[in-house]
Write a protein that binds this DNA or RNA. Sequence first.
DNA 1: GTTAGCACTCCGAATCAGTGAGTGCTAACA
DNA 2: TGTTAGCACTCACTGATTCGGAGTGCTAAC
Lengths: 341, 341
Amino acid sequence: MMDERKQRILQAIIDDYISSAEPVGSRTIARKYDLGVSPATIRNEMADLEMLGYLEQIHTSSGRIPSSKGYRFYVDGLLPQQPLSDKEKVLIDKWYQARVKRIEEVFQETARIISRVTKNVSLVLAPQLTQAAFRCLQFLPLDARRAIAVLMTDAGFVENKIIAIPSGAAFEDFQRMARVINQCLAGQTLDAIHPDTLQRIRDEIMDEELYEAALEVIYRSLDTEKKERLYLGGTTQLLNQPEFHDVEKVKEILLMLEEEQLLKDILHAHLGEGLSVTIGCENKYSGIQDCSIVTATYHLDGELLGTIAVLGPTRMEYGKAMTLLGYMNNHLADIIKKFRW
Amino acid sequence: MMDERKQRILQAIIDDYISSAEPVGSRTIARKYDLGVSPATIRNEMADLEMLGYLEQIHTSSGRIPSSKGYRFYVDGLLPQQPLSDKEKVLIDKWYQARVKRIEEVFQETARIISRVTKNVSLVLAPQLTQAAFRCLQFLPLDARRAIAVLMTDAGFVENKIIAIPSGAAFEDFQRMARVINQCLAGQTLDAIHPDTLQRIRDEIMDEELYEAALEVIYRSLDTEKKERLYLGGTTQLLNQPEFHDVEKVKEILLMLEEEQLLKDILHAHLGEGLSVTIGCENKYSGIQDCSIVTATYHLDGELLGTIAVLGPTRMEYGKAMTLLGYMNNHLADIIKKFRW
DNA sequence: GTTAGCACTCCGAATCAGTGAGTGCTAACA
DNA sequence: TGTTAGCACTCACTGATTCGGAGTGCTAAC
């Protein structure tokens, strides 16, 4: 049914379509790819492949284009190996070294790299603070009525917030409280602080108002940060793709790219799946049914940190996207480690 | 030469072109605007206006469109008054209240508001840290070898950086140093610390290595922050304008919008000018010669803080953009004041 | 100075034929 | 039985042509 030759032809058609963006005909395949058969034979095979659902035809007497099912088969078995060249790896390294000074910049630059290499839109979902472990909380005096609370996490994030000192409380009380909190929360993940721990803190602080103020710091700091950050890269790359020569299509997808929550949801759907490819109509969201998404989740010491992804037309260089994401996956852990204490 | 009636006709033509985006003919003007003259008369006047350089014609027998000079005349004298309605003001207030929790968010949300109201691209240049006054520097212990330096400025920005404690130095030395620095730098603007002051700090610290470490904190903190931030809003608004129905044009301008430094330069060119309008070919940068930019600089207690701007096709609602920027201008100072200590 | 009338220009939409790339089918071939 | 050459057919695309409409400039009359 799907013999060796059919596969080779399917592969040739998809390869050709990916690079040309034009419906491909039997003669083209016969000429460019050395399959040792005539166009007529290829035509027969193409008709079969269409019957099987791997190819589509815009109209009779046009060439064939791959269907989502076709791409799926291609991605699952026919992908040409194209490992990252050493030169590319070095370039990526240099890029990070030159541009990343602080952990927050890692993600933006990662997005840049991915979109540059793949010539498509990239998405990077940065780790949630809530998954990070509490490191320490400190208060700094500002004036008689205010202090700055600085919260640090294991992942290297530092978050600060100006808070009011409750009337009657001295700054020393804050110092004492900080000691208590640091003792109790050391190493805990922020989104799952046990009620018992909170109770212990409360007991030790022995001042309701102070306790409330401290909690507010932790929770508000957590609140502003807990929505993980999404970084986008290369949105203008879309405009180079012939499938987006129509402004309406561009508008549709650019508007979608502005809906941060939607994008996060899409990435979340693949969280923890390792390297995953979603092709065309496999996408649940109607705006991107002629796009594909390649996602990869990255880890650090076994802990799930976030997701990186490539979004492009179904006619995408899957091999390149997948090898790149695979590489960045590992690399990202190393980079982040540098900022970890 | 440019009598009352010519001006009225010019105004009518520009108003009409701004709302329709189509070359406007004499008959349209006669029908829609009650000028009390026949199309033939208007035709004569239009021919004169073209001679004078205020109008252009794509080809004979097409309607006229305003030239840059025409828009300039319009902006300088013919602008219909369209003050912000109370309803709009309330909406803006509510928007800020609902979305801005920390000072950094002020600018992003300002950009959003401007692009929503004007239906064009907005740019917001946030204050440079270097123009802000030093408030205080504090060190927090992290472990035996590291500390966190937290630098605060008058404008409400808090910046932090992890630094290594030089071997041999105790954390207490840092505390002492912080006291010295805070004393010496209090109230100084960060980009113009006087050499004498530095010398004083050096003398007081009496430890070369410690002094170097402290300086590094200040300068690196300054370094990462001194490039003022640029916030963009509403880039997809462009796609709704008929002048950008061609993907090539869209690409050109979107690519330009990705060049942060270029945009900053453009905004800088109008720094301190108050409300300023640059129309079409008045722009130095070739990529935006059929765009106009309205900029306004905002202040706080007499101190120049930054620039807000609207970028759109020359066929832009100048009146709306200008009144909005004027309003935001003042409003922004109030909003920022809330975050100031 | 203003206006009506008219010839003229030019764009854009619609139509039509010709071309070329591609297909499916059939019959011949190995 | 699988492969191939040949051929008629389809359909998008291109370029030429036509035609209506919107708009202009000019002239002559008011």
